[in-house]
Design a protein around this nucleic acid. Structure first.
Lengths: 226, 226
DNA sequence: GTCTATACAATGATAGAC
DNA sequence: GTCTATCATTGTATAGAC
């Protein structure tokens, strides 16, 4: 429904200019304090252009967001494919690294605006904004499903057994990983992202391996001392 | 500097009414969308009363926040003391449970507003608000230090060795726990908080136990399959 | 000291001309 | 598609009543 858009080469440059300016300003100042007037001024566009192209400020936020999120998801899935190619049942650490590394890579890339995106991700989850939350979980759902599948294969491959933890539990443990990752990477004072990401993979791998196989009633003794 | 405040029994009821109304509305709608006019109207107070008693909307947010946070911290520390009383070097799971349980308990308590507080916590970390972030980390810092200490004792007690993982690494792994906890509990669709909290303790305990002791150069082989 | 009424600048959004 | 003009609403500040 937007054929003209693809036809004209530099047609609606304003839309992209607004998108770029918004991303930069959101990263520098955050959603709330960044005004549409500041965005349009930086983009050399008119105030009303935002509402024309995106409908609302919230819609602009989602648009800016989704662009990065697509990038992140693509990077993760590519690395997951690599992990699969390396070993038939993938190594658990490789799978987790495929999930964690791309997020960490965002930290160093852009001009000091990497961790801002993680903050935006946190805010997206914290917000009651159903539209934003829905847009993210739709994209995220697909990725998470593939990673949960890969983790299940990895765990089953390790034990050599046909039994593996239930999918629901694996999904939950992946949620733990997402939480730890998002929270940690959102820290503005994070010193060594690379080392932190590595630690997180070790941490999560140990946690996932602690999952008991399905329908296995034998449990390790809880009492440890004295 | 506020002696009259303590003297008069029901003196400034408006301040508390505003605090209560703000908490409820923030929980229901979030920081951003909740206007001061809506708060003062719900509190049956005048608009200007907010700025008189708190100075600004941001200061009100912090005040609302700190009230719950103090409650949460006190609960956690009390349970940590219980864990210490149970075993001399505390059991790792007990320590982690002392940290996780109070947060989970918030979910069921208040009239469907429990998980909202966790969302507010996430939002606080996601926000670029330095004042809010500072107010939280100041309170949290003390608590986290005590828990890191307890975890170190627990791990050292398990191995029986005098060596334990470095404090910095333990602190980092606790950050992972905080992230996973906050993220998970902020989910509005969380079905079984109790079971989730239990899983999280198991998950984190395994992760922490995977930490290598200090100055130990021997590392486990990364290659797993074939 | 506590509270109220009122005013102010800035914001997101919209309508209509071009 | 773009722009100007305009709107209602927001957080905040002030003057003054009790």
């Amino acid at each position: 429904m937007r054929f003209n858009q693809a036809f004209v080469s530099e047609a609606s440059g304003t839309r992209d200019r607004i998108l770029d300016a918004a991303e930069r300003l959101f990263a520098e100042q955050g959603f709330y304090v960044t005004t549409l007037r500041a965005i349009t001024q930086a983009a050399d566009a008119n105030l009303a252009a935002v509402n024309y192209h995106f409908g609302s400020k919230q819609a602009l936020v989602i648009a800016v967001f989704q662009r990065r999120l697509d990038e992140l998801s693509a990077d993760r899935l590519a690395r997951l494919d690599q992990a699969h190619a390396r070993h038939d049942p993938p190594v658990l650490e490789d799978v987790l690294d495929a999930f964690v590394y791309p997020a960490m890579a965002l930290m160093g890339e852009r001009e000091a605006g990497g961790h801002r995106f993680m903050q935006l991700l946190m805010r997206a989850y914290a917000d009651h904004d159903e539209a934003l939350h829905g847009a993210i979980s739709q994209e995220y759902g697909h990725v998470m499903r593939r990673f949960a599948q890969a983790v299940e294969q990895a765990v089953r491959g390790e034990t050599g057994a046909t039994q593996a933890p239930k999918s629901d539990e694996i999904r939950q443990y992946l949620d733990f990983l997402v939480g730890a990752l998002t929270y940690t990477m959102a820290d503005a004072n994070l010193k060594n992202p690379r080392a932190t990401a590595s630690s997180l993979v070790t941490f999560a791998a140990a946690g996932i391996r602690s999952l008991p196989p399905t329908t296995l009633n034998i449990q390790p003794t809880q009492e440890t001392a004295s």
